[in-house]
């Protein structure tokens, strides 16, 4: 217990008037647009500050209506980002159509995808505020439609929008029932299930699940120091990110956003999420090839 909390509780124990910021936040529901009302806590007392930019300016998109309220959706064609290989959709399609390596051929998730075609899959990656049982705030999705890859980001602009976010994810999965993840079997899907059970939001039930972590372990574990996504990114794809946000900072970045409504730090979270999904898609292509060895880091190379 921090000293300041102890002191505030002491005031209650002494029977004085409660300290802190008055009563409940303003009873108004989320206003349309990008900045829901925050009650008293958001006011900065004292010096004047320039108000932070609108979420829509930083992460253009729209409010998405679901049966559990609203959340924010940002959508863009994947090739909008420089550095993205435009042939990704094509390569994914070949990977899916060509005869796969044996281990993938036995994989139920791969089979479900193959059966339904390229457009039936959703590459999915969650950003959460903790390791378990803490709110989910962002879901990144990559999908293909008629040869074009699209990136979609669903965001709970504050904790009250999480149920809508979960509902939106369930809705996406109902339309694209095969999910491709990295460690989704142990993390992302159970996480969604727990939060949905908790908030009584619609559950996400994919028909097929291809978890690249399992594939990577089978395929490359003996030749790599570990099977973390960034390790695979470097050793298998030969790419490395610069200035990526540390995963451990993500929860606090979100909590701060909810408090001060400044969307600018969120850009790094979005970039991280997008990167993860892109890597996931490229790894999927790579995994479908039979005999390409994983390149290894030359000894003595500096780690950026």
């Amino acid at each position: 217990m921090t000293d300041s909390l102890h002191e505030r509780l002491g005031a209650l124990a002494r029977g004085g008037r409660p300290t802190g910021n008055g009563g409940l936040g303003a009873g108004a529901p989320s206003m349309p647009g990008s900045t829901p009302s925050m009650g008293v806590a958001a006011l900065s007392v004292g010096r004047r500050r320039r108000p932070p930019p609108d979420l829509a300016d930083i992460l253009p998109g729209e409010e998405l209506r679901t049966d559990r309220g609203v959340c924010w959706r940002h959508e863009r064609p994947l090739d909008h980002w420089p550095g993205v290989d435009e042939s990704l959709a094509e390569r994914l399609n070949s990977a899916l159509v060509d005869p796969p390596p044996d281990d993938l051929a036995r994989d139920a998730g791969w089979g479900a995808w193959r059966e339904r075609g390229l457009d039936s899959a959703l590459f999915l990656d969650l950003e959460t505020t903790g390791l378990a049982a803490m709110p989910v705030f962002l879901c990144g999705l990559l999908s293909c439609h008629r040869g074009e890859m699209t990136f979609r980001l669903l965001l709970a602009r504050d904790y009250s929008e999480e149920a809508a976010l979960l509902s939106a994810v369930a809705e996406e999965l109902s339309r694209r029932p095969v999910v491709v993840t990295f460690n989704g079997k142990s993390y992302d899907l159970p996480y969604l299930a727990e939060r949905a059970g908790r908030l009584k939001a619609p559950p996400s039930r994919p028909v097929g699940h291809l978890d690249l972590l399992h594939v990577a372990r089978r395929r490359w574990a003996t030749r790599l120091p570990d099977c973390r996504l960034k390790t695979l990114e470097w050793h298998v794809l030969g790419r490395r990110r610069g200035g990526d946000i540390d995963g451990a900072e993500i929860p606090d970045t979100y909590h701060r956003f909810v408090r001060d409504r400044d969307p600018r730090p969120l850009v790094r979270v979005m970039a991280h999420n997008l990167h993860d999904l892109y890597t996931l898609a490229e790894l999927t292509v790579r995994a479908a090839r039979t005999s390409v060895p994983a390149p290894t880091l030359p000894p003595g190379s500096p780690d950026i």
Binding site: S4, A41, G130, R259
Partner: peptide, 30 residues
């Protein structure tokens, strides 16, 4: 009866955030 006082104390410590009439847990702590 001390619930609202305690809730305010936690809010002042950034442990809770008021939103739309409810108070949400808003910290990375468990």
């Amino acid at each position: 009866p001390l619930t609202s006082g305690v809730r305010n104390a936690l809010e002042a410590e950034n442990q809770l955030a008021p939103l739309g009439g409810l108070h949400y847990f808003s910290s990375t702590d468990f």
